[in-house]
Nucleic acid binder design. Structure first.
Lengths: 236, 236
DNA sequence: TTCTTGTCACCTAGGTGTTAATAT
DNA sequence: ATATTAACACCTAGGTGACAAGAA
């Protein structure tokens, strides 16, 4: 069995509609997909991998007219909607890649003795990527999947391929691939919870995420109190 | 067969008498021990590891009276000798540890397709170290050794242990473990060639090590021309 | 006197969202 | 109008020798 790490954080993002940035060079996910694993054969070899499947067959877009222009900066917009419209049918599927955890293969004992983190996994929108990154269509929704493959020592192991792997899906890790954040609340939650974005925090630099616990005050409400939202009327 | 990478740099250090810093927390080696490997079975599994054996049974010390005091800084000295005296018999041997390359085990094809770098290996003088670092005695000389172990798939593989590994020794990688550099020329060569020490360079910030090639002008002579050595007479 | 330790400024290396410009 | 890109300031994380103080 498999337990998703940082589930509380995933839930918080999921409630807002998680977005993950895709770039040409490849961008890590945040939150990082991390799991605790139980019940492996400690002595057997396993490969751990992830892939991403479309949640639906749709392409999304922002609702018209909800963009706010930034005063004195013609051409710029800063506040995107949190809702999505269906823009039509999905773009052609991207090359279906998988990401093997770099420690693969390893013994069950090794995988189970600590949290397994997919922090080397990167998402790209570059169809011609040759860095082995996961290729996704921007403005499409995806479901990450986690697969555990038992390395069968038998000579005719191919015959048993079907029974030698198990797939785990956590719906709270679904997200929309984007090239720039669409929902400002997602942006702010990323800034509040990702250590690498600390430079953009304007609230108390205090003990986040050190003191954050599941069940504590919801992040966004805490955030909203200390933030000056872009409130000046659009002067379109 | 195995080929030592950056041999020219190792040779340059070796001519001066290589020193490696040991600290309580653990210090990486510089140059880093890196090799190219040839002739493995691409499909077989191998473990790669290193250990360190004493070059002799001696403890070393600096010759007396060669220390230069730094003007206006009583108690400080800045220029150590490049020669060593035998201080006596070696201290009790440290716990004999080995460092497995973190990618072990892996297929021969994997090991051979790129340079294998032991940049995670750290040296410590802490006899009680529990980080798995290599424990060495300061002021003693060591010879790094590189071992390739074939992972024998046979059930009674223990019987063949003797024939399933091969050891490679490069004498130019010998060094003296120290807690602070003793030979100023070693310090300067480290500063000149280690990217992480760039902050201490006072010569042209130009294209080192980018343009450095084996056979080019020896480093130290190039360095000496642009450096102000500590030349004021000792006022002991 | 000689050697060791801990702190520091200054680097490398690379992960963030912002921003302005550009593409479609 | 909407979406993407590239450069950037500002972080995390950690590898350097210098330096001052301490230990033996």
């Amino acid at each position: 069995s498999v337990q998703l790490e940082m589930k509380a954080l995933w839930d918080e993002f999921n409630q807002l509609g998680t977005e993950m940035i895709v770039t040409k060079a490849g961008r890590r996910m945040f939150p990082t997909f991390q799991v605790k694993i139980f019940g492996m054969d400690p002595m057997a070899d396993y490969m751990l991998l992830m892939d991403f499947v479309p949640v639906d067959d749709k392409r999304y877009r922002q609702p018209p007219g909800l963009w706010l222009r930034v005063p004195f900066s013609p051409g710029r917009y800063a506040f995107h909607s949190s809702s999505w419209l269906v823009a039509g049918k999905a773009d052609p599927a991207t090359p279906g890649r998988v990401h093997y955890h770099p420690d693969s293969p390893a013994k069950g004992a090794q995988w189970m003795k600590q949290i397994v983190s997919f922090d080397k996994l990167k998402l790209t929108n570059n169809l011609l990527d040759d860095n082995g990154h996961i290729i996704l269509n921007s403005m499409h929704r995806y479901q990450p999947r986690f697969h555990v493959v038992y390395v069968d020592p038998r000579k005719d192991s191919e015959k048993y391929a079907e029974e030698n792997f198990k797939t785990f899906v956590f719906e709270e890790t679904r997200f929309t691939a984007v090239t720039a954040y669409q929902n400002h609340r997602i942006t702010q939650l990323k800034i509040a919870s990702n250590p690498f974005a600390k430079g953009f925090r304007d609230c108390d630099p205090e003990d986040w995420p050190r003191n954050h616990r599941p069940g504590a005050l919801p992040l966004m409400s805490a955030f909203a109190r200390s933030r000056n939202p872009v409130s000046s009327p659009a002067h379109q």
